[in-house]
Amino acid sequence: MKIIEGFKLRNVAGQTVITGEGLKQIDFNKLISLNPTAAYLWQQIEDKEFTVETLVELLTSHYEVDEATARQDAEEILQQWHAVGLIEA
């Protein structure tokens, strides 16, 4: 899967948010707030094809976390991103 075109990571008052800015997202009238972990993942997979495995690997190599927890977190994040229309298969 990959991130849908037209989203941009921005820093608003010290917090990381996603805005829809490109032409493809001209009607995306939302602001998605990311916690530091989600922001880290986003930055690593921007402009790339990725799978759940990619996220699990990123999480386990960057944070003190076991694989099972990482997988659970990764799946949860992907589910959320999918629900708001940030990623596509």
Partner: peptide, 20 residues
């Protein structure tokens, strides 16, 4: 809060944000 404020102004301002 700042994020809500940003979102509020963003959604109520006109924009032709097709270019970076």
């Amino acid at each position: 809060n700042p994020i809500e404020s940003y979102a509020s102004l963003l959604s109520s301002s006109s924009g032709m944000a097709w270019e970076q």
